[in-house]
Design a protein around this nucleic acid. Structure first.
Lengths: 310, 310
DNA sequence: TGTTAAATTTGAATTAAATTCATATATGAA
DNA sequence: TTCATATATGAATTTAATTCAAATTTAACA
């Protein structure tokens, strides 16, 4: 009766707190997940969640099954990796380049998990700034780029990771503080504080401001914390991933606003040459990134990818 | 893709060595199991078993998944018990009586497993010989009888355990050594060596010899080893569970024969008052017996019981 | 070297289970 | 009260698992 799929659902519910979001994460409808959980509750004749407007809260019984999920799922994944190893030698190397600045936030736990899963693979982070990271793949200087899809993906393959919302960050007393969302025009003549990368690589500029032909000033800073300080001291506004600014918003250091009518979302992929991306450990890097980020980053949405078959 | 049901199937295959027997054990057809395993192999693109006339042998990949099963299934069962505990206090006592002599062979590992699973339940074995063990239930002297179903099961409930074959045991040079199976007439004027219990409680007498009106002599011994010694030294023949005589047969100390045209099978149940048998820990005793015996006793067949819902 | 018995495999038909769709219901905030 | 945001429900549908009825495969044995 209890199946692994139930455990995965419980984990998704724990991560998102909401049935609807959890359903997205396991690629089911909200209704399907509701039926699934209900079936479990009926089978064991016990309530697993306290339902409320604000979402689901685990009861002790629900928590017990969640604990089981957290215990079992990693063991299962490790077994699946071992099956791959039994098929053939899986040693190799994996040089990762990050296209996105903020990705450094979660890369450390990802690399830790990866090293534990694939001790025989030599994994490295390619250091330094690169204006065209995808080019490093063809040049043989890197194996995987974590970032958006490049224009021309000749000879490259990608695995979908997740998407996240980029939100505008303002000082708490900014004139726009009462709007629920900022439109392109709201940025006119503002100072936009960004990482020091080309305009083409900054989503809000490429997708919002440039199409609307908005004039704005620009100022750069290397570190997220520096950008936040500049915003808080009213030197300008920024646009950053929702999960990177959470702490600052919670402490009323800055406020965050959606951008555009439906929000500005950015998608992340693991990109590499075809030869690299068929390797089980490269596919597993994508799976690990998805898992680690799903667990740690609030508000992200996993991109559909059928499933990553090692 | 991989589900707990697959792990249970793998465990059953490991225990029985044959797809057909494993299928019985998980209450599926042999075909269904074949499809199930094939689906796993296709999914992971790896061979899990070496098939042969003699049954299935695990490949390293199959073994890896079997290891996973052996790691996960106990954790799952423990979680299910914990769910019960969360519903209500489950302390109590459980006094077990054995109707069958040979059951002592496997009772120790069962009681160990039970104590681990239900530390708050006081479990005891009711000592001494009882000509009518079921009577102890109504008399309040015992909580569960492990044995066959009594004639009148007034106010009693039972949970099915398993059935096993009772085989005739002969000295290796016995005149009947070349028959593949013994019929009732073959016992005429032989000496039957049994445990010291009433004739009505001895299956071969009640079900085979008495109906055929065969005359035989009888001699008793307390211990299985004593019975085997008597058989080996040509003092008579015995009828014992197939799993209890394995060692002796393997060492050519005695030989074993099927009894009757389709074998003589005996069924075992856990029997108790209705109030007792609804308790989760009583139901779980039955589950534990089934599990432990399935794992350790060759040639038994689990009785259908839908499933034991704690 | 057939023959047979005891296995597993296969593919189509069937059955059962999971999922979706469309809608209802519940909850707390405004 | 109404609205926005959740979860629940039941019927229809889709998908997956299982059975049924052969077809193979394999090794032992005559």
């Amino acid at each position: 009766m209890l199946e692994i799929r139930h455990l995965k659902s419980l984990k998704a519910i724990a991560e998102t707190g909401k049935l609807g979001l959890a359903a997205e994460r396991v690629f089911l409808t909200q209704s399907a997940l509701s039926h699934q959980i209900r079936a479990l509750e009926t089978h064991y004749n016990i309530v697993l969640f306290k339902r409320s407007y604000a979402g689901l809260r685990f009861t002790p019984a629900g928590q017990r099954l969640l604990d089981l999920a957290n215990e079992l799922l990693p063991l299962i994944e490790q077994s699946e990796r071992d099956l791959i190893r039994l098929k053939s030698d899986q040693s190799g190397e994996l040089r990762i380049v990050l296209e996105c600045h903020t990705c450094f936030d979660w890369l450390t736990p990802v690399m830790d998990a990866f090293r534990r899963a694939w001790p025989e693979v030599e994994v490295d982070l390619v250091a330094g700034f690169h204006s065209d990271p995808w080019h490093l793949l063809h040049a043989g200087k890197a194996d995987v780029v974590i970032g958006g899809l490049p224009e021309k993906i000749k000879d490259l393959q990608h695995l979908a990771l997740f998407k996240f919302e980029i939100m505008a960050v303002l000082p708490p007393d900014h004139a726009l503080r009462n709007k629920s969302r900022l439109l392109a025009a709201d940025f006119a003549n503002e100072t936009l504080i960004t990482y020091p990368v080309p305009e083409a690589r900054i989503d809000i500029i490429r997708q919002v401001l440039q199409p609307a032909n908005i004039h704005f000033n620009r100022r750069t800073a290397e570190l997220t914390i520096a950008i936040m300080q500049l915003v808080a001291s009213r030197r300008g506004i920024a646009a950053l991933p929702s999960w990177g600014i959470q702490n600052y918003v919670e402490h009323d250091y800055v406020i965050a606003k959606h951008i555009g009518t439906s929000g500005l979302w950015s998608e992340l992929y693991a990109i590499g040459t075809s030869e690299m991306m068929v390797r089980p450990y490269a596919k597993d890097l994508a799976r690990i990134i998805r898992d680690v980020c799903a667990e740690n980053l609030k508000g992200i949405k996993l991109l559909e990818s059928k499933q990553i078959n090692l």
